[in-house]
Design a binder for these strands. Structure first.
Lengths: 211, 211
DNA sequence: TAGATTGTTAATCGATTAACAATC
DNA sequence: TAGATTGTTAATCGATTAACAATC
């Protein structure tokens, strides 16, 4: 049951969640593992295994309740409750994350954005004003923050993690193109955009060789 | 040898490339699988397997030549030659990709950015001017484009892929939060940002339960 | 009830790790 | 040469798929 979700399964859960959301929006209330498998390009067997080891439940003979399963996976992922994020770095990526409202639908709220550049401090990004990174400690004392988004240059990545962890932040969403070291009590998920592009590049070669 | 690189190995290649780049920048000319394994948190055995099945070569008793291996993996990934990208959608993400210069270091060049919004058409984003998406067909006739970056709203994702594929584009870097359908001769790599955030959310819960 | 589909166990497949012979 | 480290084969491990009994 809970606690035994492997990396492989975990990586699929957000995708299930997305499909179930879409189904719910289309007023589909019930779905079988077979039908979902066809839509997602998986096997029905894998879907049943995944749901089962995540603690989800269906009904024999009928399938799964779409809203019930969606809510369940949302709960497993921990996205039923609001989470506050601060963004460090008001460059291209930091700004894009700040301006995006698509994370709010998963209950992630950006509450502040910081930078060290005097040119950027005080500037408006959407509803937020860029704050001075010097004041991050004071800010963290005032307001609960669950996640720090790292959108700083390569050279500052590690020092920002170290500093924020000292200040009590234990979850990081990292856009810095480096594998940052974090203490055991912290969690980091890295988005290495250029890696995706390089994988695409490989696959382009591959598929063109087929002809 | 070549042609037999599994998904699992392929997903690690960009990371090897990144580490080798860093080593080269630090003037490390030679490295053993053992030393690299320690730095990357992998096993030496896996590194040797990965390099071997990618066609890379070391020297018994010494290890691998850092620049040679870096170049080799770069070639396997197909990033030794320039690739032109066009961005569809001049919103937050489209703009961030356009403004980022970090992709240029992997030889990916943004040559144009398109939108349908009259408010955005004509606006400057870095060195580029936002073009009218209506003119994308004419543009593709004039200039070779290897990759289209999809940064449009959810509702337009599929129609943009369909249209661009009709116009001859076969590689897509997708930021639309949907699994878009592509023909067999095309390739797509999707970046589902909110999925990473949801995975982080799960891991935060997990690690806090440890205490 | 009969039909359908889950939950779960067993079989298969692929990926990772271990071991060691080849060789620089 | 001796020591070190690769290249590669074999063993292990985990994840996926298949099968089927349980049950709605």
């Amino acid at each position: 049951m809970a606690g035994s979700i492997s990396e492989a399964v975990l990586r699929r859960l957000p995708r299930y969640y997305r499909y179930l959301n879409e189904l719910e929006a289309d007023h589909v209330m019930q779905i079988s593992s077979k039908e979902l498998a066809e839509r997602m390009g998986l096997t029905a067997s894998q879907i049943r295994q995944d749901i089962n080891c995540s603690g989800g439940e269906g009904r024999q003979g009928f399938g799964y309740s779409v809203p019930k399963l969606r809510r369940h996976i949302g709960k497993v992922l921990g996205i039923q409750s609001k989470q506050n994020m601060i963004i460090i770095g008001a460059g291209n990526i930091g700004s894009a994350v700040a301006l995006s409202d698509s994370f709010r639908t998963s209950n992630f709220y950006t509450v502040a954005i910081f930078d060290t550049d005097p040119q950027k401090i005080g500037k408006k990004i959407g509803a937020l004003t860029v704050l001075d990174y010097k004041d991050v400690a004071a800010f963290l004392k005032r307001q609960p923050v669950h996640i720090a988004v790292l959108a700083v240059p390569f050279a500052s990545g590690q020092s920002v993690v170290d500093r924020l962890h000292d200040l009590g932040v234990t979850a990081f969403w990292n856009f810095v193109p480096a594998d940052l070291d974090i203490p055991d009590d912290a969690t980091i998920v890295s988005v290495h955009l250029e890696e995706g592009l390089q994988i695409l590049s490989y696959k382009m070669k591959e598929s063109s060789q087929t002809f």
